[in-house]
Amino acid sequence: MKDEAKTKKRITNELAELCQRIAELEKVEAERQQLERKVVEYEELDRLKSDLLSTVSHELRTPLAAIKGYTTMLLDYDRRLRCEEKQEHLQSIDRATDRLTELVDHLLDMSQLNAGLLKLEKQPISISKLIREAVAEAKLTAPRHQIVLNMRKGLPRVNIDAKRIRQVLDNLIDNACKYSKEGSSVVVQAHRGGSELHISVADQGIGIPAGDLERVFDWMYRIEKRLPQEEGLGLGLSISKGLVQAHGGRIWMESEEGKGSKCSFTLPL
């Protein structure tokens, strides 16, 4: 009986020890798996950074090609070019510098937003006036689209960085025109809803697949999915999201493929 008790105790001890070893091994395995996931995440991030660098380099070189090309052409062939032609080439250089400026601004905005360093210069302004101005300018830059403004009267003044919210509006209207056919409508709406201001831009364009709706605001996704013919880095929506959130607002996209998209955002009152 004594021996049996001793054996039982020994087995119990051994079992306890074994359980402890298993628990330790499980812990080590879980840590290993977590590390493995981290390595995969870092590798993915590294690949995306490399993709971003290569895309940025490509996007900077393209307008530079126009600037360098036309400038040297004007210098080398000056006497053989007519005045009107020189004017056209200078306009191409001008367009290319605008494109470069926009790219650099977008990169700077993204890096400041990511680092939380973007400073807003808020002051109370008339949102109605800001939206009207954005729509009026869009009608000039996209004359082949029907840009419609549907805005309630008497919208309150809001405390915002006017330049940044105008940037969001311009980006949403520009996107709506870019991804919809000429002649179709782009509707800009604004109304007060409780303690928020709701602003939306809707188009009748190609729409976005349901699975991509959340990710259109993700810059990494945009870099990955960027088409060769797309101009720019595709960072507009990511920057818009950052700017709206910096104001304490929300931004979201609704869409139906083949029917159109509607991007809405709020600003707290």
Binding site: T62, A65, A66, G69, Y70, M73, Y77, R80, S92, A96
Partner: peptide, 16 residues
């Protein structure tokens, strides 16, 4: 070349 400005530049230089 899909970029109109770059295409026109190269084209014009070679025409000249």
């Amino acid at each position: 070349e899909d970029e109109a400005d770059v295409r026109h530049f190269a084209s014009r230089v070679l025409q000249l």
